[in-house]
Amino acid sequence: MSIEHTVVFRLVHEPGSAEEQEFLATARETLTGIPGVEGFAVLRQVSPKSALTHQFRMTFADAAAYDAYNAHPAHVGFVEGRWVPEVAEFQEYDFLA
């Protein structure tokens, strides 16, 4: 069974700012370069019902691919160097598909 990994989040940066755009571009470049990442998408929340403004969505063929992604140095570096200091709030969901 495949795994759909979703992270919904709000950045510390102002919406539409150069910092926001740079974060999203770096995330796309970094995360799609990790083996096993399929169908990567960056989505923007439009409903006023949630304070979380963005979503990263990606699919992995199986649990082994997802585990390898989580342990990959590029993912670990992105989380430590960018995600932790620049994400104000988030929710993470992993679904079997």
Rank of each mutant, 00 (worst) to 15 (best):
N70W: 13
V84G: 07
L31W: 02
Q91K: 14
L31Q: 08
V42E: 06
A71D: 01
A63I: 09
E89W: 11
Y93A: 06
K49G: 06
I3P: 00
A61F: 03
F9L: 05
R10A: 13
F78T: 08
E14Q: 06
E29Y: 10
E92H: 11
V46W: 15
A61T: 07
E22Q: 15
Q91S: 12
S17L: 04
A61E: 08
A63T: 03
V37M: 06
R57K: 13
G33C: 03
T59S: 11
A65N: 04
E92M: 15
S2I: 03
N70S: 15
V12I: 11
A68C: 00
E29H: 13
F60M: 05
F60C: 02
I3E: 02
V79C: 00
R10I: 08
E22F: 07
P85N: 01
H13G: 09
F23G: 00
E38Q: 12
T59D: 09
F56S: 03
P48H: 00
E92Y: 15
P85Y: 02
G33F: 01
V7H: 03
A51R: 15
A88E: 14
T59K: 14
E22Y: 08
G39C: 02
T26N: 15
T26Y: 09
E86C: 11
Y93F: 15
P35R: 07
L96V: 12
A18Y: 07
P48M: 06
A41Q: 14
Y93N: 04
F9C: 02
A64H: 04
E22S: 13
E86N: 13
T53G: 10
E14I: 05
V84K: 15
W83T: 05
E86F: 04
M58T: 12
E92Q: 15
E89Q: 13
T26F: 11
Y93I: 12
F9H: 02
H54Q: 10
G81L: 11
S17N: 03
V79L: 14
I3K: 01
G39V: 04
L31F: 01
D62K: 01
G77T: 12
